[in-house]
Amino acid sequence: MHLFLKNILFEDKYLIIFNKPYGIAVHGGSGINYGVIEIFRKIRQELAFLELVHRIDKETSGILILAKKRSILKKMHENLRNKLIHKEYLALLHGHWSEKNTTVSLPLLKKKNDHHKKKVCVHKNGKPSITRFKIFQYFHNTTLMSIIPITGRTHQIRVHAAQFGHPVVFDQKYGDIKKEKKILHKKNGRLLLHAYKVFFYHPLNNEKIFITAKLDERFKKLLKIFSKKNIFNNF
């Protein structure tokens, strides 16, 4: 509970902006009893209304927005549809991303595999999906990227990156699991994708809201390892 309160980045009478830790689902379901929303409802029982404005993957860390009033939730959803809420992610991708690929526009379709688990793929019958990529820094065999999803499809960043042969490091759904298996054990790996910036105008008073979410120690430690040497040489 203390971690949740500590990770609140912004709060007023209408919104909570939270730096979600890696490995915590945003809501319960599919064998998970509690997610972020259930925990917040428990520690903030005085609130008559509390809902997620949007979602991020369990494996992804970073900015998550919650609304304290239904009218605010409705307005924030409207702003999301009109692309008035700007989110930026930080990710470490395999390989060296080409400077030519600044925008990826590929339709995405949700599918379920034989085990009834959700997976997203590029498909002509999918929903239009656009992601912008900007190179921060090249490492030995990885690239640190700033990524802006123009649309907000499920697993959009992860699938678009993987489609170009540069999956997010330690992505067990869309990456090279066999290649990373030993490193996951040795280096205590986690998906290196973090929602680190958000910018929008407050739905009530039109005040500019710009929030940055710091990387956790685990993410920073892994970045340091990748920046110093080629840890995949032996695999």
Rank of each mutant, 00 (worst) to 15 (best):
Y89G: 10
K111D: 10
V159W: 01
I37A: 00
H194R: 07
S61W: 05
K75W: 12
H54C: 03
K228Y: 12
M76D: 15
R44M: 12
L144T: 09
K181Q: 14
N234H: 15
G28K: 07
K134W: 04
K83N: 11
R81F: 11
L215Y: 02
G35L: 04
R55D: 02
F4A: 08
I24N: 05
V36K: 07
N233H: 13
L64M: 05
K118A: 02
T212H: 04
T151K: 10
K69D: 01
S105Y: 06
N205Y: 12
L3M: 12
L215T: 13
H94L: 07
K6T: 13
I17V: 15
Y201A: 01
K220V: 01
K178C: 00
D57H: 01
K112M: 04
A25R: 00
L15W: 12
V104Q: 00
D216I: 10
I56V: 09
N125G: 08
H27D: 02
L64G: 11
L222V: 03
K124F: 01
L90T: 10
L9Q: 15
I148D: 11
Y201P: 11
Y138W: 08
I37E: 01
S30M: 11
K111I: 02
N205Q: 01
Y138G: 14
R158I: 01
D176H: 10
K119W: 14
G62H: 02
K112E: 13
K124P: 08
L73G: 12
K110V: 09
T60K: 03
I72A: 11
M1P: 04
K208Y: 13
I24Y: 10
L184F: 15
R44V: 09
T142L: 04
D12Y: 13
N205H: 04
G31S: 05
F200Y: 15
V53K: 09
I157C: 08
K111P: 06
K42A: 09
P21H: 05
E11T: 14
D176C: 00
T154S: 05
L92Y: 04
I65E: 10
F232V: 01
S61P: 02
K124E: 06
S146H: 11
Y201K: 15
L106W: 09
K220L: 12
A162K: 07
Q156C: 06
K181H: 11
A67R: 10
K118G: 10
K221M: 02
C121V: 14
A161K: 08
I37F: 02
K6A: 02
K68W: 06
Y22Q: 13
F139A: 13
D176V: 12
D57P: 02
K110S: 09
I39H: 14
N188P: 06
